[in-house]
Amino acid sequence: MADGALLRGTGIGKRYGGVTALDGVDVEVRAGEVLGLIGPNGAGKTTLMDVVSGAQDLDAGTLTLAGRPLAGAPWRRARLGLARTFQHPQLASELTVAENVLTGRLAARHSSVRGMAASMLRGLLSTATGRDECARLAADMGLDDPGRLAGELTLGEKRVLEVVRALAQDPQVMLLDEPFAGADATGIAAIMEAIRTVRRRGHGVVLIDHSVDLVASLAERVVLLDSGRVVFEGTPEECLASSEMRAVYFGGGYDRT
């Protein structure tokens, strides 16, 4: 592994009963880099996101963020500088667009869920400064009605809002799991700009998407997973031209023998 990685995972393993979902995965994300994770269904992409974000416990290996051990509940990892979106948007449907964005900002500033809730109860959601800042950030991503309830948004708009909420944390590393699914052309453009914003800040992005072309257009490096293992790592151009890519996507799997 190269020096200077923001996020580093070494020997990551995860099992579900008798099924090995991740088998000795090494991965790193560097400052100012977009890392693409690709592979067929069941390759282990979302499982890797889960163990990095704390949604699932890893069974083997180590994780560090900016040189510090990455462990504990998701809110602890958010405090360290990790943000994540999900395949199925996880928003507070009863809160407005601006309020959802502010929950992301609060998650990065408080050491516990209780502390974040206390901040809300003290009225941070109703302050003009907080409301205006979050409304402006949402508007920059194409969500022009900050008072609209998240539950009223289309799937594509929810995707954008999840990315905006993650961006509000000003994370060192942002994990994006299928952020473009269901988004229209405007939403896709907004999410792509959010990814570039994180990269310009010198932070890192891990991107999963079924559209290999979209991943290739944004990522500096690509990791190809198959059956829980890394079978190729390199530039998008190298990966797309590799025999491993052809085997995984068109040949029924990568033969490791």
Rank of each mutant, 00 (worst) to 15 (best):
G72C: 02
G4D: 06
T10F: 12
L161K: 07
T10C: 13
E233S: 12
A190G: 00
E244V: 11
G54D: 02
S111L: 14
I195V: 15
T257F: 11
G253E: 02
V212S: 02
L176N: 01
L125Q: 05
S119F: 10
V173F: 08
A183H: 08
G253V: 11
T154V: 12
R76M: 06
G252Y: 08
I191T: 01
V25M: 09
D3G: 10
S126G: 09
D144W: 14
P74K: 05
V52R: 10
A66S: 11
E33I: 14
A66D: 09
I191Q: 00
R136E: 06
M192D: 06
A73L: 13
A117Q: 13
L214S: 05
M245D: 03
S227I: 10
N100P: 01
V248M: 03
F180L: 11
L143R: 06
T47G: 00
S227P: 00
D255Q: 14
L167I: 05
L218E: 03
G182A: 11
G32I: 12
D226M: 07
M245V: 14
A216R: 11
A189K: 13
T154D: 01
L153H: 12
Q56C: 06
T235L: 08
M245G: 02
C239G: 01
G202R: 08
G32Q: 08
G182D: 06
D57A: 15
E99M: 09
A98R: 14
R122K: 15
T85L: 04
D170P: 01
D226Q: 07
D50V: 12
G130H: 15
A73R: 15
I188P: 00
F250M: 12
L124F: 13
G228M: 07
A219I: 08
V160S: 03
A98M: 06
F86E: 03
S227F: 14
D184G: 10
G67K: 13
V163S: 02
R15E: 02
A189I: 06
R79E: 00
E244S: 07
R148P: 03
D57I: 13
M1Y: 14
S93K: 14
L207Y: 10
D184E: 07
G67Q: 07
A98L: 05
G187F: 13
L155W: 15
L218F: 09
S119N: 05
R196Y: 03
A219D: 00
R114H: 05
G228T: 05
G32R: 11
G228P: 00
V29S: 03
Q169A: 13
V205C: 00
E28C: 06
R256C: 05
G252A: 03
V25G: 02
Q90R: 15
T235Y: 12
G187I: 14
R200F: 06
G202D: 01
A219Q: 04
R76W: 04
G252D: 02
L224N: 03
V222P: 00
V223H: 08
G17F: 09
G156C: 04
E244L: 10
G253C: 03
G151L: 06
Y254N: 01
T10W: 13
V223C: 05
V29A: 09
A60L: 08
M120S: 04
A150N: 06
T64H: 11
S243T: 15
A107M: 05
H203C: 08
L37D: 00
L121R: 15
A71T: 15
D3P: 09
V230K: 12
R30Q: 14
G81A: 07
S53C: 02
R105H: 07
F86P: 02
L37E: 01
Q172D: 12
